[in-house]
Amino acid sequence: MKTPEILFLCTGNSCRSILAEATFNALAGPAMHATSAGSHPTGYVHPRSISLLEREGFRTEGLRSKSWEDLKETPDIVITVCAGAAGETCPAYLGPAIRTHWGVEDPAKATGTEAQIEAAFDTAYHILRYRIEALLQLPVAELLEKDPAKLRQELERIGTLQP
């Protein structure tokens, strides 16, 4: 079976999709691979994303804000992470991939005290990690090959989960 390629897609590709990419790859091992991209990348990874990932023990080398136009592989699954409730417009990936939405508030837009901003990053990370852990419980490669409709249904269910 082919190694499933996951794309975490956002608009800016500086926070949520980066957090998801690094967390997914650290937890998934060689069975699956994720990348992240943005429809309008900021061109930088938010420093708080880097410090959070390092604090969690994840590697951050090579993480960069990139455009979906620069993807080397066609993804099998595209997970958008923009928060519809916040009025963000999530990009629509135009490839043949299974698409789902895991809306998470953008911590880069958080305001308030240092502690409140840090809490926004922690919240986004914990939501994404919880959903990624649920995804990793699925036989993704098998479902991708034999029952993509079931996989899409499971991905949509996971997108509603909260830690």
Rank of each mutant, 00 (worst) to 15 (best):
Met1Tyr: 01
Thr3Met: 10
Phe8Ile: 00
Cys10His: 07
Gly12Ile: 02
Asn13Ala: 01
Asn13Ser: 13
Asn13Glu: 07
Ser14Ile: 11
Ser14Asp: 03
Cys15His: 05
Arg16Cys: 09
Arg16Ala: 05
Ser17Tyr: 12
Ser17Phe: 03
Ile18Phe: 03
Leu19Trp: 07
Ala20Thr: 12
Glu21Val: 10
Glu21Leu: 10
Thr23Ala: 14
Phe24Leu: 07
Asn25Lys: 10
Asn25Trp: 12
Ala26Tyr: 06
Gly29Gln: 02
Ala31Phe: 05
Ala31Gln: 12
Ala31Thr: 05
Met32Lys: 11
Met32Thr: 05
Ala34Gln: 08
Gly38Asp: 01
Gly38Thr: 01
Ser39Leu: 07
His40Phe: 11
Gly43Leu: 11
Tyr44Phe: 15
His46Glu: 13
Pro47Leu: 09
Arg48Ile: 00
Ser51Tyr: 00
Ser51Phe: 01
Ser51Asn: 13
Leu53Lys: 06
Arg55Gly: 12
Phe58Gln: 14
Phe58Met: 15
Thr60Lys: 03
Thr60Asp: 12
Glu61His: 13
Gly62Phe: 11
Leu63Asn: 05
Leu63Pro: 10
Ser65Thr: 02
Lys66Ile: 10
Lys66Glu: 13
Lys66Arg: 15
Ser67Ala: 13
Trp68Thr: 00
Trp68Arg: 14
Glu69Lys: 05
Asp70Pro: 05
Leu71Tyr: 05
Leu71Val: 08
Lys72Asn: 08
Glu73Tyr: 13
Asp76Pro: 09
Val78Gln: 09
Ile79Leu: 14
Ile79Tyr: 08
Val81His: 05
Val81Arg: 01
Ala83Thr: 06
Ala85Asn: 09
Ala86Glu: 15
Gly87Glu: 15
Cys90Trp: 04
Tyr93Met: 06
Tyr93Leu: 03
Tyr93Cys: 03
Leu94Ile: 01
Leu94Trp: 00
Gly95Ile: 04
Gly95Trp: 05
Pro96Arg: 14
Ala97Ile: 00
Thr100Tyr: 04
Thr100Asn: 04
Trp102Ser: 07
Val104Thr: 14
Val104Ser: 03
Glu105Tyr: 06
Asp106Phe: 00
Pro107Ile: 07
Ala108Val: 09
Lys109Ser: 15
Thr111Arg: 15
Gly112Lys: 10
Thr113Asn: 03
Thr113Tyr: 01
Gln116Val: 06
Ile117Asp: 08
Phe121Cys: 08
Asp122Trp: 12
Thr123Tyr: 04
Ala124Asn: 00
Tyr125Leu: 05
His126Tyr: 06
Leu128Gln: 09
Arg129His: 14
Arg129Asn: 11
Ile132Asn: 11
Glu133Met: 13
Glu133Phe: 02
Ala134Cys: 12
Leu135Gln: 09
Leu135Cys: 12
Leu135Lys: 04
Leu136Gly: 01
Gln137Phe: 03
Leu138Ser: 08
Leu138Glu: 10
Val140Thr: 14
Glu142Thr: 15
Leu144Asp: 02
Leu144Asn: 00
Glu145Gly: 01
Glu145Trp: 06
Pro148His: 07
Ala149Arg: 11
Ala149Asp: 15
Lys150Ala: 14
Arg152Lys: 15
Glu154Ile: 00
Glu156Phe: 02
Arg157Ser: 02
Arg157Met: 10
Arg157Val: 12
Ile158Arg: 07
Leu161Ala: 06
Gln162Pro: 00
Pro163Cys: 03
Pro163Thr: 10
